[in-house]
Design a protein around this nucleic acid. Sequence first.
RNA 1: GGUCGCGUAGCCGAGUGGCUAGGCAAAGGUCUGCAAAACCUUCUACAGCGGUUCGAAUCCGCUCGCGACCUCCA
Length: 497
Amino acid sequence: MPDLYIHNSYTRKKEKFEPLTPGHVGLYVCGPTVSGESHLGHARPYITFDLVTRYLKHIGYKVRYVRNITDAGHFEEEGREAVDKVDVKAKLEKLEPMELVQKYTNLFHKGMYLFNCEDPTIEPTATGHIIEQINMIEDIIAKGYAYEVNGSVYFDVKKYAQHYPYGKLSGRVLEDLLETTRDLDGQDEKRNKVDFALWKKAPPEHIMRWKSPWGEGFPGWHIECSAMSSKYLGETFDIHGGGMDLLFPHHESEIAQSTIAHGHPPVRYWMHNNMITINGKKMGKSYNNVIKLSELFSGNHPMLEQAYHPMVIRFYILQTHYRSTLDFSNEALQASEKALRRLWEAYEVLQKLNVGTNSTPSDAALDGQVRKWCAECEEFMCDDLNTAKVIANLFELAPVINGIKGGQIKADAISASTYQLLKDTFKTWLEDVLGMKPLAVQQSNKLDQALQVLIDIRKEARARKDFATSDQVRNKLAEAGILLKDEKDGSVSYTIE
RNA sequence: GGUCGCGUAGCCGAGUGGCUAGGCAAAGGUCUGCAAAACCUUCUACAGCGGUUCGAAUCCGCUCGCGACCUCCA
């Protein structure tokens, strides 16, 4: 097992990863709030941490990957805000939170499937863990770090900060936070404005509510992750991931809650992915600049010049290091699409390549270079998951593959074992770890046979030098999105867009 | 205002103090009936100004510009 180094947001340093339990990794990632449809920005953490689990598994770990569904809170159907939720009499006219949650959970899962993100091993819901959350809050109250006011419970941050390094994760200083002048809901109930809610009393119009020792209400914003991560991964676990925007207050609060409840910090390695920006600004609801996943896949959005395949989005995200911002543009996405096509075609060529069984390469320099490029992929991933460099190396290898096929490079230039290494490298990195899949749909046998008929007709026309007919076949097919390619050896291949 | 981060060739994006990723686009060439693809070649950048150093895009300082968080936020 190679040594993996990851950037720990808590220490702001690259650290060697060592799991609590040898051979096993506990990973918790903040999942979606299913009150609306996921957008491009949401895709980044899920693709990033899919990569993390894939890589951990690749190097031999058994991973328990917990990603929650936040389905509790103040939910409203989009465009339905105006409806008076209390006065509507008919049952079916009323906003039913579960219906909303179901709808967006399904959409989220569909998106994850299209992105080829593997399922988390446990996907707990906040509503399914109300008891655990209440228990944890009671525990924190009992330990003297939370107080109840008027049916709500708040965490006493000021007291916590006297004994623990509050703000270390997000680089926050308590005094600065106390100075911030901002009026928030429930401010007057709190002892200090920095205190955060563990439990909120539900106002009459609030549609989601549960009984608790403090009356009817709903859990605070941060407690679910603490309750569920400790339940499934233990009081201390290996990796906690999420977007950088969750550093404060979400993750900072998680640390505080868990530290009091369990007597020690919950997480050994914090990992945060950077944001996706659009025109330099973070993509987010509050900026009114989101592109939803369904819009991305359909191209149905004023900012989109075309539809983008989920694999193109995935590739585009992985072409950048996860801790850098990534700026959206049609140009960038189109470049990714072409790049991925090229790489994937090289991979397909590689699998059909006819190479000799020579044990010694005729071009030792090239053979050595290929072996180096292949071997480096592992080093790059070990260094804080540098997918950009892995992809760059695959692009270095592509001309070698295409060159052998095209005859510019002799078939025996690399040894049989190097050829096998090349195949393994593409399979391992492009498919297994980066999680790429072909863009083209699988063709049916019948379509293939039909195309062969057309290809034969064209072939015969070309043989008679009847180029008008041959070009007509090719051009008409091209119009339909089927591209014919005359190969060097006289065969004809096709790609379907 | 506070905290943190960023500024790399036409565009997107890696990056170690010296060996000048990669992709897309562009130009030229090889191949081809013509295409397309592929292959080869070319385009040598690091916001500005100082400093440290034999040597800095990479370290330090200042200036300018941008962003994130401080409020739900991936």
